[in-house]
Design a binder for these strands. Structure first.
Length: 495
DNA sequence: TGAAATGTTGGGGCG
DNA sequence: ACGCCCCAACATTTC
């Protein structure tokens, strides 16, 4: 009877990286409160480090568009859009509307944690109730502990510990009703935020490749379950096949939760038997790597800026913008590397196997600082995610937790021949060498003149000669690594 | 979630 | 027939 008194003070439901209605604990809490709800998204224009990159902004625009439509259709609630320093915007809105409570789902980036902690204290100080919920992770970073009570620095024991915890709860569906707050509020228009590229509009490839939003995420998951899961363990390494889930950007923006994925997989395994089982295990472990990245970032907040292994701070990087730029533009002369970089530029995404290859190439063959690579990925990936990006780059560089040892240097030719054996992937993204026979598709510079001529390819003109020699670059990288070790030994000896 | 260098073995060509 | 050498093919070690 008293549940929806018009005079009841409102609850602010603050959307952040949880742009969905289903399995959204903050939204469920808002519904359960019975209070009128103000749905808010704040564009953070005050952020200094790690402001959203171009590809992410494109995605955000469409995801907010979808969320706004869903809120309106389902609940008759408008998504209020404001920009500025989120702390100030939320505080001001709470005062403006005499809000009784503010609810949100947690973010785990160090700056967001600090901000939310301050905001929570300030709101409570003014007698406003706050609620923060977990919508983004299977397990909270502080929940997973070693025997000794510390945090994990190695993946396998981390994931084992996760699996020993109670399974994540079954994700609830979106609540039936939310009570709208009827007083009109000034809102920005989404188009005013300039999130979409213009002059030039480089987003054509993104539009072809993606459907941002909760419905798009659900469709993507269903497609993966139907088409790719049963051969995931093998197929996931093949960039020439559509064998991965491509859920990463949806996960980043919270259009789907890892809990929803976990349970969808579980249902599939229960009905599908063993062939699904081992593949599902492999896929769940990928969710595990995501959890591990968040675990690392939470407990080592400098992860995006600083090498996890201290000795790596002394690594003799070869700071040469020309090399970095050739890598960014996909003009290294190594087809598998260039294909990956061009896929990234065109679609805002790159196959995971190829990410490892291009990252290894930048850090080891070109000896450019992993932070340069991380910054480029940050700007160009639609799934750019601070925890995943920092942890993964450090993993490849060898500077991270449980990282690949530095001497593990991918051979871009062998990797290409192994995982893109017929060259389909390379031909798609590096069309100028498409006419080369399979034998030379991953090493055009070894093709005899006759073959080059028949393929209509002038090496060094139509397609670059290799930027560096593989064997020489490999040896140089190993030497640089050795110098790091010697420095450490010397320092220890001197100390 | 590598690759290259080095070591070992065994079949077969050949004098 | 026998020993020698060559060199795949595979295993181990090293970076």
């Amino acid at each position: 009877m008293a549940a929806s008194l018009p005079a009841s003070r409102p609850l602010i439901l603050w959307f952040r990286q949880d742009l969905r209605l289903n399995d959204n604990p903050a939204l469920s809490a808002a519904a359960a409160s019975g209070r009128p709800v103000i749905a808010l998204y704040v564009l953070d224009t005050a952020m200094r480090d790690w402001a959203m990159g171009g590809a992410s902004r494109w995605w955000l625009h469409h995801s907010l568009d979808q969320l706004g439509a869903a809120l309106r259709q389902r609940y008759g609630i408008a998504l209020l859009l404001r920009r500025g320093d989120p702390e100030a915007v939320v505080t001001a809105l709470a005062q403006e509307t005499d809000a009784r409570a503010v609810h949100w789902n947690r973010c785990y980036e160090p700056a967001a944690v600090a901000r939310d902690t301050r905001l929570k204290a300030a709101l409570q100080e003014s007698g406003i109730e706050t609620g923060s919920h977990n919508a983004a992770l299977l397990f909270e970073p502080w929940q997973v502990k070693t025997q000794a009570g510390g945090w994990f620095k190695v993946f396998s024991p981390f994931w084992r510990a996760c699996r020993a915890l109670p399974e994540p709860a079954t994700p609830p569906r979106a609540p039936q009703t939310l009570t709208p707050w009827l007083r009109p509020l000034a809102s920005d228009a989404l188009t005013d935020w300039g999130l979409l590229p213009h002059r030039p509009d480089w987003a054509g490839g993104l539009r072809e490749a993606w459907t941002p939003g909760e419905a798009g995420a659900a469709a993507r998951l269903q497609d993966f379950l139907d088409e790719a899961l049963t051969s995931y363990a093998q197929g996931r390494d093949r960039p020439d096949r559509a064998a991965t889930s491509k859920l990463s950007p949806h996960l980043h923006f919270g259009e789907i939760s890892p809990r929803q994925i976990w349970h969808a997989i579980r249902m599939k395994v229960d009905t599908g038997g063993l062939t699904v089982g081992s593949n599902a295990e492999k896929f769940l472990a990928e969710l595990g790597w995501r959890e591990f990245s968040y675990h690392l970032l939470y407990h080592f907040p400098a992860l995006p800026q600083r090498s996890f292994r201290d000795d790596f701070e002394a690594f003799p990087w070869d700071n040469r913008p020309r090399l970095l730029q050739a890598w960014q533009q996909g003009r290294t002369g190594y087809p598998i590397v260039d294909a990956g970089m061009r896929e990234l530029w065109h679609t805002g995404w790159m196959h995971n196997r190829v990410r490892m290859i291009v990252a290894s190439f930048l850090v080891k063959h070109l000896r450019q600082d992993w932070r340069q690579g991380a910054a480029w990925f940050w700007d160009t990936l639609v799934d750019a995610d601070l925890a995943n990006n920092a942890a993964s780059w450090q993993w490849v560089a060898g500077s991270g937790a449980d990282a690949a040892p530095y001497f593990r240097i991918f051979n871009p030719i062998l990797q290409g021949e192994k995982f893109d054996s017929r060259g389909d992937y390379v031909r798609r993204w590096v069309p100028e060498i498409a006419a080369l026979p399979d034998k030379y598709i991953h090493k055009p510079w070894l093709a005899p003149d006759k073959v080059l001529a028949e393929s209509g390819l002038r090496l060094g003109r139509d397609y670059p000669a290799p930027l560096v020699d593989h064997d020489g670059a490999r040896k140089a990288a190993l030497a640089a690594f050795a110098s790091l070790r010697d420095d450490a030994r010397e320092a220890a000896g001197a100390g």
